[in-house]
């Protein structure tokens, strides 16, 4: 009987000690925010376009991290982003619903602009400069092509143009050999099933 009591007491004391250590550790090593959401946010293209159904990249990342959203809703990110998120989350990849369009950039036809500042308020990355009753202009290097400025414009003077291809950004394509194509396709298939 005494042996049993001794065992219970020592185990209880040990559990108490472990509980105290854990409680302290939780205070000391507390992490602000959701690290998983931040990691996912780092993978997203940051266009802030809202095509995923969330009001920006960070909310979508938080939703994915909380298993509320699927991994395949980022349209501009395309398949590569989807695979990266699926890999990070350790979930099965899902087919991307919508093909990513060519990178676009917004352009304001200045002679039609009435200077209403509605697009400036809509732009998620502050890529539009202008003031009330002054022409507005897009900083092309900052524009993510999210199209959020097109809808609010009352005179419809914003065009989405295909981003001009720069010779400095040109990259070599894969060599045009049968083996290179086979190798590439195999890798893509493999990535899709990983």
């Amino acid at each position: 009987m005494a042996g049993l009591l001794y065992a219970l007491l020592s185990l209880g004391a040990f559990a108490l000690l472990a509980g105290i250590i854990l409680a302290i550790a939780q205070k000391v090593f507390h992490v602000e925010g959701d690290p998983m959401a931040e990691k996912i946010d780092a993978l997203l293209p940051q266009t802030q376009c809202g095509q995923c159904g969330y009001p920006g990249c960070k909310p979508y990342a938080a939703a994915v991290a909380g298993h509320e959203a699927d991994v395949n809703h980022c349209v501009p990110g395309g398949e590569r982003t989807m695979l990266a998120i699926a890999d990070l989350m350790g979930v099965e990849p899902k087919a991307v619903e919508q093909e990513a369009a060519a990178p676009m950039v917004a352009f304001i036809r200045e002679d039609e602009c009435i200077g209403c500042t509605l697009c400036i308020k809509a732009c998620p990355v502050d890529a539009i400069v202008g003031a009330p009753k002054q022409y507005h202009a897009i900083i092309a290097d900052h524009c993510t092509g999210c199209e959020l400025c097109v809808e609010p414009c009352p005179v419809d003077c914003i065009d989405m143009l295909v981003k001009p291809e720069l010779i400095e950004h040109w990259a070599w394509p894969l060599p045009e050999t049968r083996r290179s194509r086979i190798g590439h396709e195999r890798r893509e298939q493999h990535a899709g099933h990983a």
């Binding site: 946010d41 293209p45 802030q48 990249c57 900052h142 990259a171």
Partner: peptide, 22 residues
């Protein structure tokens, strides 16, 4: 390979700048 890596770095850099702006 070099071209693709350069492109990925460029995209990452742009995404980080966009995140900063947003």
């Amino acid at each position: 390979g070099k071209g693709q890596i350069a492109q990925q770095r460029r995209e990452k850099h742009f995404a980080e700048e966009s995140r900063g702006r947003s």
